[in-house]
């Protein structure tokens, strides 16, 4: 353990500044931070197998019945499906909007471009609560208050900036001569977009898409404001349940399953994007 830890610290930014005692304290601090981040999740996971219907830690006894009580979990499964659908559609919309906006922002010059760019980034910076309130007010003006479509639109507003950012980064690196070459070889603009531009923007689209999906899937604030019966996302439902009925063990079980799902998803993504990254860097590295 210390064999592997010490060389890391030596090559770190504090190299030469602290002695062995300082180094030990530094290591303990890092360990404490890791524990602090992981502990709540571990607590929930462990507590979810408790025999008691209310949440206790350490758990008393062991049971898996909170995971198998399908009647109790029915609403959560519905909310999970709704969350998946919203996240998938919000990701698709964010990708479409993000691609277009990023290409315009990187390639066109027009007055007010900097202001427009800042505007598109504002959902990242502004308080989500303000955005949710504003959206609720705005949507009630046009007569569509809650439910699937408002939730989807609001999620897209929050997710698109991430796609804009990542695609912009890819688009800046894209050599315009590639598209000009395709044009001169006889490809019409739509064909050039499909054959050349999109494949080369793939890293940006992929990482932006993943961020958009996770942010939509995890969002509580906006989902809570715009939820309707039968159109409530899982995080919003969990929040509602926790505040209405208090912390019960079913909540912990749902959280445990959600954690497992997200880990699985990240594993799949890592597989896909990890391989993708290897392929692109193999090409880029030898240029």
């Amino acid at each position: 353990m210390s064999d592997t830890a010490i060389p890391q610290i030596r090559s770190g930014p504090l190299d030469g500044l602290i002695g062995p005692v300082g180094r030990a304290i530094w290591g303990a601090l890092i360990l404490a931070i890791c524990v602090f981040i992981l502990a709540p999740i571990l607590v929930v996971l462990v507590a979810s197998v408790s025999r008691t219907p209310y949440l206790t830690f350490p758990p008393s006894g062991f049971t898996l019945r909170w995971f198998t009580d399908l009647v109790e979990l029915r609403d959560y499964f519905a909310a999970f499906q709704f969350s998946l659908l919203v996240a998938a559609l919000a990701t698709a919309m964010s990708l479409a909007i993000g691609l277009w906006v990023a290409l315009v922002l990187t390639r066109r010059d027009f007055p007010g471009k900097a202001a427009l760019s800042a505007l598109f980034m504002s959902p990242i910076i502004l308080p989500e609560l303000a955005l949710a309130l504003g959206l609720l007010q705005y949507l009630s003006q046009i007569g569509a208050v809650r439910g699937m479509l408002p939730t989807l639109l609001a999620h897209s507003v929050v997710c698109a900036p991430y796609v804009i950012r990542t695609v912009q980064a890819s688009a800046l690196r894209l050599d315009r001569n590639l598209e000009d070459s395709a044009l001169s070889l006889g490809a019409k603009p739509a064909r050039v977009l499909w054959d050349v531009t999109l494949p080369l923007l793939k890293p940006g689209l992929l990482s932006g898409g993943i961020m958009a999906f996770v942010i939509s899937f995890d969002n509580v604030t906006i989902s809570l404001f715009l939820a309707a019966p039968g159109a409530t996302t899982l995080p919003a439902l969990l929040f509602n349940q926790a505040s209405e009925t208090g912390l019960n063990t079913t909540l912990a079980a749902v959280c445990a399953m959600l954690t497992a799902f997200m880990l699985l998803l990240m594993l799949v993504v890592e597989r896909l994007v990890g391989l993708e990254r290897m392929a692109t860097s193999a090409v880029a590295g030898k240029r």
Binding site: D180, D195, A284
Partner: peptide, 30 residues
């Protein structure tokens, strides 16, 4: 795309995600 002219750029501008043969065949494919 309607001019039918051959262009070679200073940095070659080969499509990095296509093989040499796919690059050469692109104009014929479209």
């Amino acid at each position: 795309f309607a001019r039918n002219l051959g262009v070679v750029f200073q940095n070659y501008a080969l499509f990095p995600h296509m093989t040499a043969a796919e690059n050469v065949g692109y104009g014929l494919k479209v």
